[in-house]
Each structure stands twice: as C-alpha cells, then as structure tokens.
Amino acid sequence: MSGTADLSTSWTFDEWFVVALARTIQDREVVFHGFGSPCAQVAMHVARRTHAPNMLLIEGAMYAVNPDPPFIPPTSNDASLKRGAAYSMRFEEFFDAACRGDVDRMFLSGGQIDRYGNTNVTAVGPLEKPKVKLGGGGGGCNISATIGSLTLWTTRHRSGRTLVESCDFITDIGHVTPAGDREVLGYTGGGPQWLVSELGIFDYDESGIMRLRQLWPDVTVDDVLAATGFGLVVADDVGSVDPPTSEELRAVREVDPLGVRRSEFDPAELDRSFSVSA
C-alpha cells in the first residue's frame, strides 16, 4: 500500500470485522441493513467507498438511497443518515421492493442461529415463559424469504450460546426449516450466503449447511468447533482472512468516527489488535 503505512500497519478487530462484512457486498448490488445493526451499517458505507461504488445503499431505518452521512449515530433513524441522499424511500416502498425480489442483499443477525442460517431474534427459552425476551424481528420474517442473498453476522459466537443445534424460535428464514426448504416453501430469495463471526467466516454448502471457510489469525479450528453447538462442516482449504487495506481502514475510520460499531462486541473482543511490520 502506498503512502499510508501508519493506517495499514495496525488495526483493531472491530475495524477488520466491519471490513470482512463489507467484502460480502458486490458492486452494483441493492443492499439493505436492519435497524440496530451498526457493524452492517458501517460495512455498507465502507463497501460503497471502496470496492462497490455503484451499489444502491438503502439506509436501514431511514430508507434513504445512497446517503453520505457525516457520521453514523447510535440510533438507526436519525436524520443525519439521510444527509446527501437525493431520495428517501417510503417505508412501504422499501418493503415492497424487498418482497418482490428487487433487493439483492440484506444483513441479518440473531441471538440464536442454526446450521441452516435460521435466526431467532424473538425469544430464548419456551415461548410461554421465555428466559430472555429479545427485541423482535422487524421485517425479517417476510423479507428474509425474498431478498436475493443474506449476509449473516454475529459478534457472540464465542459465547457458545449463539450458534445452536436448533433455534428456540425461528424468526427469519435460513436454507431449511422444519417446514421444508426454500423450494418447498416457494421462496425466491437465495438465503444465507455468508456468516461472519468474531471467530471466522463461513459460507453454506450445497445442502444449505454452514461451512468454515476462513479464520481470523488468532483463532483455531478447535476454537470454532468448541463454540459451535452443532457439528460444523470445515472446508478443505480453510484460509486466513485477508488483512484490511489502507483504503478499507481509512473508510472505516471516516465513516464511523463515533465508533458505534464497537457497541456490538464483548469488551474482550475489542482488545484484539493486529499489525504487520512496516
């Protein structure tokens, strides 16, 4: 990298995580993130400033199209998030586009995620008397069926409680549910394509099952297996996540001066820092 060695020689895990999410976006895609998702939100702006300048970025709870916010605030529907947008969709305009298949990618997370990428953001424990009532799914139980591809993410893989054998409640659709797969259900969306966690990067095999593809350099395959509540498929050629470029790091720091992305992580994860010798 040229001229910015100070930027590219050291970085923190939260910065790298956001860069990894950004890389799941392809140029010219129509992309959306849900509310309360600062990592995904920052990642979308990073992608648009780096490798995906022609994406259509739809801002989570403002429905602003291609805004250039002066900073990312800690709430998803602050007016700062429509700065620079020539147009903001109405609520129904966005959801109609998502339901008819005009949105290419959405970011989704969950308190529980199973091997097929079904997610639970409703309640942990029995529904009648939940152990933890989570916030709820927003629009996910419909639009996860029809959006082109899903990028899942979690910053709580290590807890052992997130990647589970089966979700206590399925809020959003993965590849296969107890009621059948996407073909049986008549769903046109492609389902989960990637899952990025603080332990590694995963894709989904031809059976729709989560598969380890890349590790962060301070994580081992055994770490991942120990934290995962189901028998994990491991790719033959598990690699290491490519370090962020200076361009990517600069974009993260410019997009998110308040560091809202950090609110998603356990404090111990924020201590992970990396460097390359200059």
């Binding site: 409703t122 529904l127 139980c141 639009i143 069926a145 029809t146 409640f169 009621a179």
Partner: peptide, 13 residues
C-alpha cells in the same frame, strides 16, 4: 396475502 412467514414460528403468536 404475504409472501413470507411460512417456515417461521411467527404463526404460533
């Protein structure tokens, strides 16, 4: 009609 919901646990509510 809606396009989604099938396959989720939302109808239980």
């Amino acid at each position: 009609p809606v396009r989604g919901i099938k396959g989720t646990d939302v109808p239980r509510l």
